[in-house]
Nucleic acid binder design. Sequence first.
RNA 1: GGGCGCGUAGCUCAGCGGGAGAGCGCUCGCCUCACACGCGAGAGGUCGCUGGUUCGAACCCAGCCGCGCCCACCA
Length: 777
Amino acid sequence: RVVEKQLEAEGSSREEIGREAFVERVWEWVQEYGDNITRQFKELGSSLDYEDERFTMDDEYVRAVTKVFVHLYEKGLVYRDNYMVNWDPGLRTAISDLEVEQRTVEDTLFMLDYPLESGSGSVTIATVRPETMLADTAIAVNPGDERYSRLIGEAAVLPLVGRRLPIIADDYVDPEFGTGALKITPGHDQSDFEIGRRHGLEEVTVIGEDGRITDAAPERFRGMEVDEALKAVVAELREQGLISGTQPYVHDVPHSHRSGRRVEPLISLQWFCDMDKLAQPAIEVVRDGTITFHPEKPWTGVYLNWLENIRPWCISRQLWWGHQLPVWYRGDETYVGETAPGGEGWERDPDVLDTWFSSGLWPFATLGWPKATEELRAFYSTDVLSTARDIIFLWVARMVMFGEELTEHAPFTDVNIHSVIQAPDGRRMSKSLGTGIDPSDLVHGGPRPPVYEEGGEFPAYGADALRFGLLAMSSSQDVRFNEERVKQGRDLANKLWNAARLILLRVSDVEPDPGAGGTVEDRWIVSRIERLTERVTELYDGFRFSAAALELYGGFWSELADWYLELAKPRLYAEDNAEVSAVLLWSLERILRLLHPVMPFVTEEIWDLMPGDDRGLLAVADFPAVDPAKFDADAELELGRMIEAVTALRRYRDEVGARPSASVRGHLAADGYDACRAHIARLARFEWVDEVSGDGDVLATVPIPGGGVQVLPSEAFDAAEAEARLEKKAADLSKEIERAESKLANEQFVAKAPAAVVEEERRKLEEYREALQRLRP
RNA sequence: GGGCGCGUAGCUCAGCGGGAGAGCGCUCGCCUCACACGCGAGAGGUCGCUGGUUCGAACCCAGCCGCGCCCACCA
């Protein structure tokens, strides 16, 4: 279509340049377009075998497609028939049911009076397409409709044409709709076609493939466009007084997904593929779990439901670009074969196959099938297909059907259905709407369409940022494009780079070793990273990429960067930093491995800067395995308390307006902080005094897990503000205590809730009481 | 007409039976020798509405109100 538009712009057309030249032009375009796609994949860091690209029009692939067509023909699954098809008057080709979309249209519903043959009155029918009456061959009523029962078996006379229309009974007719009588036009309506076949009615075609009235209609209408004919027919009927009413009517009408034109149902000689037999194995492999959809919830059902109600697939297209049918005709003879038949006078069918026919062979035809190539043996069946849901029927289901039929294997084991990203205003991304964006513009910077706000240009976020952003904003639903997530990705890349800089510029040349240090914080970070590994592995395995990306963001940023690096600094800056270096290097390396699938570029770069020769590429390095022995609940508990304490003290400083650079004097009166005493002092900027002489000196007690910190007067802040803060804290604690007490006073709760939950509630209550006790002795 | 899904902090979205979360935005402090694309501390939700199940519901069930998608041969 793009090439056709180009030709049109040049004042030419495909008909003018002819089939060969046209195909030539498309090849040129394919080359250019394909290069562009390849460039984008590389830019985004897709780890693909760029030496080994395939295209469905490659010679070998064409041979595979041909073979499949012949195979299915010989099995009787592919056949040629006169059948009702969706005709696209824009492209002048048949299209499949899946290429049709329903659009709401406002039409006029006409009431037409058809005189009875007997001369005694008429039957009134309702139609939105009066022009098709020229092809009417019957009138149908519901067999149970008493208004018409006496007319069944009689006939009416078709106005303007004079054809005799038998009045038949069919359950399809809804007595409630319109007048309860339906004109039957087997040549131009899907359901009429089926009724016609049921009753053996004549099939008259008055609209041709060119969208004009054919010779089957009275001479005065011939050659008219459809809308022209509608007016002419209505005018004549009106003149004869046969229109007894009109009313506006809003309904859904099939349109071509490709050209946007209203689909013209036509009876046409086309090639079809019988899907019933192919569908069975494709249903089986999903039912028995050979293939799993992710997320499983809606998509398994959607897929199965479609296959269980499948209809024949019209596979021939009256186009020039595509796989030409391996079919030849000579007079009444038809030959189907992989090579042209011998003998004189054979002519090849000019039609091509629906593109999804060849696409359906992709998983194995790209690997050399039908030849038993090494690639086929090595890579087939494949593991994962990742795609959008709008392609489940068009492509996924067909790949499964063809895979099962031709290779006797499911072509993949997992189908990941990812989000479709919409424009920020919820509309689809599309060039014509001006809502689409080129990923390259986010990587390198580029134009920002108006719906993306802020105007101007996108900054150069980089490929890692874009990858992170897309993963983080993805979901099991469609989502709106969220530039903030891309920004978040850029920030993460930057943070990672800086954290790596801190580590790599200070660290001594040692082997990464999680056990080298053994301090609480060392055991803590190792345990936390091990747990992060476990969670992220689960999420990747479950195709939950947004959760994985956000887990990694949080794990790295708030635990490694915010806490551990701050805790490790003194040791890192010291003369002998071998131990902490080993732990830092292990931690960094682990984060790089976990994050690499999301952000391949920064992680690879940092990996390359790590000490040690011959590290190889991170891209091919092992993904870490979880070692539960590294989980350390004690260290996590201890550090967790320390973090709470530091936060409480910082909050205190903030509330009290302590000068940021000044130290607050205090006495640490709490248990369980032997290993963290110095850390707390440094991170919260406190200066410990060993003993408090008299209670009169204590300005406040800041509750922390396991005790409190008694704050003593110092230069850092004003004493009066401390008192106000203490009031508020006490009130908050009282409220919490009240809540816990009332919950525990509920006999039902204590009796029926799991013991652990009740116990936890008791523990909290105790904790709050202690804290309040310290504040208000 | 059938089926599926969504309505949670100002915005974009997680959570899907045991005391409401993230990023951004917002408020207050900080140029603290990796990073201001940063650091620290906070404010901010009757989890669409109404009933029900449960000791306990954003989470399960029913109905309603608002969006959206898919499938379908009512002229």
